[in-house]
Design a protein around this nucleic acid. Sequence first.
RNA 1: GCCUGGGUAGCUCAGUCGGUAGAGCAGCGCAUUCGUAAUGCGCAGGUCAGGAGUUCGAAUCUCCUCCCAGGCUCCA
Length: 660
Amino acid sequence: MIDVTLPDGSTRTLEEGTRALDVARSIGARLAKDALVASINGVLTDLSHPVADGDVVSIVTPASDAGRDVLRHSTAHVLAQAVLRLWPGAHYAIGPAIRDGFYYDFSLPNSAHFSDDDLVRIETVMRQIVAEDQPFLRSEYSIEEGLELFKDQPFKVEIIAGVREGGSPEDVTEVGGSVVSTYSNTPEFQDLCRGPHVPSTKRLGHFKLMRVAGAYWRGDEKRPQLQRIYGTAWESSEALAAHLAQLEEAERRDHRRLGQEMDLFSFPSQLGPGLAVFHPRGGTVRRVMEEYSRARHVAGGYEFVNTPHITKAELFETSGHLDWYAESMYPPMDLDDGQQYYLKPMNCPFHVLIFNARQRSYRELPLRMFEFGSVYRYEKSGAVHGLTRVRGMTQDDAHIFCTREQMAQELSDLLSFVLALLRDFGLNDFYLELSTRPEVKSVGSDEEWDEAEATLAQVARGANLELVLDEGGGAFYGPKISVQARDAIGRTHQLSTIQLDFQTPQRFQASYVAADNARHRPIMIHRALFGSVERFMAILIEHYAGNMPTWMSPEQVKVLGVRDDHDDFAQDVATRLRLDGVRVSVDPANEPLGARVRRAKKEKVPYILVVGGDDLVADTVGINARGANDPERGVSVDEFRARLRQEIAEHGSPELTRGA
RNA sequence: GCCUGGGUAGCUCAGUCGGUAGAGCAGCGCAUUCGUAAUGCGCAGGUCAGGAGUUCGAAUCUCCUCCCAGGCUCCA
């Protein structure tokens, strides 16, 4: 007999030769029925795996992160089986579980491609395989046997051979260590895989194939491009439906769609990809964002600077950007005197020149220079995406020059400043990411990097937020903290970045005179809070689903007379609001009231004021607020003005706090 | 940049076999005067992304270019 320990600490005595599934049965028939895989001493295994004396065993069911991963991975195998059934001779590469689903990469005979119709056919076959209730059977082979077994599958051979030659960690994972493990559910289909898998295909079924895409083999653009099929899979049809509903919600909020509908901005094709124009309404949102940011920066002790959009090559040679990023810079303009001029992709070197414009004293530090700096980056044509990835953008960019002694305090003040500003824009669910030195593509000594990383890590830990490590994700000149924010539908966006840089001041030989009368090198902090104004606006539009808080709304109030003999009073109300600084317009009564209310609602105006005969006499308005169900009648104009002034001043968004 | 799929009126879309363009919304005009999500009638609106080719004839077939979408790669 053997003893195993369960997650609650209890033990169970079972016969020798017992499998994980038997442990589940010993706990309960219902659990045994739900069980997908087991975790033995923290390692996920098939249910058929034997347990030994002293093992700690827990049973993994579908409605858990581990369970969903297994479901998705097993569904990917079924996808591959279906594709091989439909396209004999297809080559299959890898098919992991990913967030919300799975994918599998293929190469079809005669360089054929999947079409959208093919997805339907494949899904049909997958459902047949599920209905056939095929078991997932594990086998183990030597590497040589594995090479023979998959001799017609070049991608599998490459993976196995990779393991034999030392192998990348991914390859070892794929294969299952120095033993080649495979899963077959029928003689028809066998796949190289570490596992574990669900006991049988019958346990799958709540999945949907989503799309076809090209993907480079091993993620390397110099390698062949494979055909990738993406799918999503869940533990129940309800969970699947909820996921699909979430995708629809994201589509409804898409800033590109809302930007069009709300007349905020557009991308004229005459300008080229990734180059946006802001229409008056979008321009208003943008202006309000920038004005508020400026006011906060003034209060935060920043000085305002301005720099040109083009520069001689020398500047970016000195900064080092041309060494690493020449490909994603617009090509240079060759001018008459043989000089090359570049559009600027970054503001930092310009700000260093301002620092260097005269001798600096330690008394001036920290010196904080801020600029809404427009930069141009030649993003690959396939990479541009709405306002979130553009070729021309404006960064809310600042560079802080300070001493080494000041930097820890400055960074921690800065982090508080950043979070406060983001909260003012209505984001309040954050975590931090610490990005360290890149393996290639970096400059500077190990000591400098170690000090910079240690300082940032200390500051990040002090913020009392979840902290995630992003190994090797730093800039070439220094490590960074990035602030990640979760939006209203739970997606995360990388927003602000704070980078610590010992290199650029050296490259530009920046210095200040300290109390000891000697020259010292300042350190430099790069930081952008919005990231870019364009991208931040896109994130806010999606966060609010277009219902911008009143203080940011392009139009805050629309006044509607009931009949045209009320239009003069409507104008009067609008004029009084305008004197308060409110963005307001009147929609005259040559259409029925219902039609005008409907239009204003579709425009997402926060307040629709309806004025009729009663209001004209009593100097009141009827308030139809965005997100509210019933209009509020007979509110005095002055009362409404006071409420609105307060709401705008506090940056409140009442319809959100009302839960509408 | 690569793979796949797209581009028809300001927007959303229809357009049969290759026979020369259509709806709804928006816009404009007239009528309507109305208390909270669509008043009626009329008018106007198009180099079918652009160019070349095949054809008696091209929105439709072929090629090239531009732009968009979803991925991959990249993201200072």
